[in-house]
Design a protein around this nucleic acid. Structure first.
Length: 280
DNA sequence: CATTTCACCTGGTGGC
DNA sequence: TGCCACCAGGTGAAAT
């Protein structure tokens, strides 16, 4: 489910429902797979902490946590962070304890209010991590944020790159948050072929791409993201941006702009959809 | 270092 | 109905 608009939607929904709550206990399923931090360390570290805020960084959900001591967190100092990456099929759900546990539930976080945060992920590509912020820096992610990147910076990011622009858009060390759907959709709106070498795009083309990308991401956030199969937000509500897709998963269908047949190719092993007429 | 390929997983879909 | 190939929102390690 998760590219920037979906992660943004989920983080905002979870934030609205658990901000200010306190973690009472943590259950972690399979002891290894999804955990970048040892399960025992994550479990004891999370226990007792107050949830200060839930937000998005790239494709990560960042849960800012206060003190484990109930009387010691009147300040809003972030002392630890729980990082949730949803992979391809991950979900972060706010549930009531009596709600049936979905298959592939790998973590359950119980809260003082009685609610539960549940991490569900059939394909197990998602990851959980826990960091304490001593001298360590707060989690920043790996690249520039697509929604706020400036024109100059956007040009710099792709300068000299010999990789196809589609692959560069998916590289989280360059821009963080763009995935397969929004890469294809933004390239269509910018009229750029996905195989074009990133470093050979003109400044004008790159600026067109930057604006297209930001427009697509903002529209998708406004519609709650794209529900391609079973994606739902924290409240179990589907997104509607899939209805606005112009090329993604439309192989063989007519281009909505010119009628040409939408083609599908592989770039970096990812299905890539484009209109051969509209995109040059 | 930059780039490319592939393994990691489960589940849904469509052809035969 | 069953079986099989193929496809899917993403990374990160290994090879080139």
């Amino acid at each position: 489910m998760p590219e920037l608009p979906e992660v943004q939607t989920i983080a905002a929904g979870v934030n609205a429902r658990v901000r200010g709550d306190r973690i009472t206990s943590v259950w972690l399923g399979s002891k290894k797979e999804p955990f970048k931090t040892p399960a025992s360390q994550m479990q004891s570290g999370l226990g007792g902490r107050k949830i200060l805020e839930v937000r998005r960084v790239g494709k990560h959900i960042v849960v800012d946590l206060g003190s484990q001591n109930p009387s010691g967190d009147r300040g809003k100092t972030v002392q630890a962070q729980w990082i949730v990456h949803l992979g391809m099929t991950g979900r972060l759900l706010v549930s009531s304890p009596e709600a049936e546990k979905a298959p592939h539930t790998h973590a359950t976080v119980e809260l003082r209010s009685g609610k539960e945060l549940r991490f569900v992920d059939p394909r197990r590509f998602g990851r959980l991590a826990y960091y304490e912020l001593g001298q360590n820096e707060a989690f920043k992610g790996t690249g520039d944020e697509p929604l706020t990147v400036t024109p100059t910076r956007f040009v710099d990011i792709f300068k000299g790159r010999k990789t196809p622009i589609k692959a560069a858009l998916l590289n989280q060390k360059l821009l963080q948050g763009v995935g397969n759907i929004y890469a294809d959709e933004s390239l269509f709106r910018a009229g750029i072929r996905p195989r074009r070498m990133a470093g050979r795009l003109t400044h004008a083309e790159l600026e067109k791409l930057r604006v297209a990308l930001q427009t697509v991401l903002r529209e998708a956030i406004a519609l709650g993201g794209s529900s391609v199969s079973d994606y739902v937000d924290a409240d179990g509500v589907k997104g509607f941006f899939q209805l606005e897709h112009r090329v993604y998963l439309r192989t063989g269908e007519p281009c909505l702009a010119c009628g040409e047949t939408i083609r599908r190719i592989l770039i970096g092993g990812r299905g890539t959809h484009f209109c051969p007429t509209c995109q040059r």
